[in-house]
Design a binder for these strands. Structure first.
Lengths: 234, 234
DNA sequence: GGTGATCCTCACGGTTCCCTAACGGGCCGC
DNA sequence: GCGGCCCGTTAGGGAACCGTGAGGATCACC
């Protein structure tokens, strides 16, 4: 359970880091809005604790930027008690709003509530079949489904994906049949600032096809939707 | 959007009923905990507004009883500010906790946040039927509803829409039965600067008809309103 | 310091899509 | 009957997009 902690208050950040760490959460720290957006994209946290009023990027803009490509729960911390600010943050996509000062056990309970609602990543069916290959998302392995023991090992050795390829493949396999827009794919894999560089995608989709499709020149599983994006069809 | 309002405070209940009703929510009222559990089971609300400290059944027990069989979002209202009570309610399964007195616009924003996170139990409202075809607006797919196995696959494969056609179709499907003027359609699809170029529309409406209507020459779903615009009739 | 893998940039054909233009048919007023 | 208006249809050019290959930049590891 990774939590992205975005707060510029040194003292509060240390206290939260210790408390959350003791509860078994893995804490990633960001000190301004830009860093928060960046880390949200690169580390894929399971929850974001966001302090409004950080330097560089306005808090509501951080929420909007993250929501443009991710549904990760966002819990806002703020010293402001205006209901207008709460409404803005919640409508921008935040899931909860806590005003400082707050009781630590209440914050922890709200974190648990958000984590509970979040779709469990390590749910079921970590294995997906693509043609003659079987992909295991948790073990990060690909083996040949067709019976043979030694042959299977040999095939597994021949199909190896790079980290970026795994991130991309994970997105496809978790959204079978659905259209994934370029914007969404680029945001999830490379971060929100590269949402316009379409060149990356073509290259890595081509590599996935070359490694996973039976006939890469005529894709059957990783389909192109011209002008919109790509689609994984099981 | 149905909201189950469980509150024994007569005055607050009336105020909430009026406010929520004005926002387009359908309000179901319960006056004690037992009635709340009962109505939650029989009416299947989309969200529960629950006041702690109602007679007959303890608030936290209501939460547990509902959570035993449903994941409907529960938003707790309470006059108690103890963090211990908040923790109990949240850990029992509540999704949010608001202390009275509260600002009405904040409550509404929190309701929107909870409603946003709940994508509906199973029936995706994103699917619309047009004749023998079923359109899924989020997955951007069109498949044949009629059972036929191989024929269905073939039809699904043959119906592919371009990005502009999807934008236009989305407008029609989101405004069923309503007249859409040329001005409105052109502005939404091609931007505000092309509001007078009527040529685009004829072309793309024709393509939608050719791809979706059973008999494109005699439209049944995408109707022309001469001199004004078009209308989608489900 | 060398080596290998990974990631990104750049440039080049092929395909798809979008828009322009022109033509035919139904409806209305004259 | 006749001409104008609006709608439906078809064909074609230009632009954007996609697939592919080669090569440099960066980093981990030996």
């Amino acid at each position: 359970m990774k939590i992205l902690l975005a707060d510029d208050d040194e003292q509060l950040q240390r206290a939260l880091r210790i408390t959350l760490g003791a509860r078994g959460y893995e804490v990633i720290a960001a000190r301004d809005g830009a860093e928060a957006i960046d880390l949200a994209a690169t580390t894929h946290p399971d929850l974001i604790l966001l302090d409004l009023g950080m330097p560089k990027v306005e808090g509501v803009d951080v929420i909007r930027a993250v929501r443009a490509w991710s549904k990760v729960p966002i819990l806002v911390l703020s010293g402001r008690t205006d209901s207008a600010e709460k409404v803005d943050a919640l409508d921008a996509g935040a899931d909860d709003y806590v005003t400082k000062p707050f009781a630590m056990d209440e914050l922890l309970a709200r974190i648990r509530a958000r984590a509970r609602a979040a779709p469990g990543d390590e749910g079921d069916a970590a294995e997906v079949a693509i043609g003659d290959l079987t992909v295991d998302l948790v073990a990060k392995t690909i083996r040949s489904s067709a019976g043979g023991g030694s042959k299977g090992r040999a095939a597994a050795a021949s199909v190896r994906l790079t980290p970026t390829e795994w991130r991309l493949l994970e997105l496809f396999l978790k959204n079978p049949g659905k259209l994934l827009t370029r914007q969404m794919l680029l945001g999830e894999v490379w971060g929100p600032y590269h949402a316009n560089d379409a060149g990356y995608l073509r290259l890595y989709v081509a590599q996935l096809r070359r490694k996973l499709e039976p006939t890469p020149s005529e894709p059957r599983y990783f389909l192109t939707e011209p002008g919109m994006g790509y689609r994984f069809e099981p």
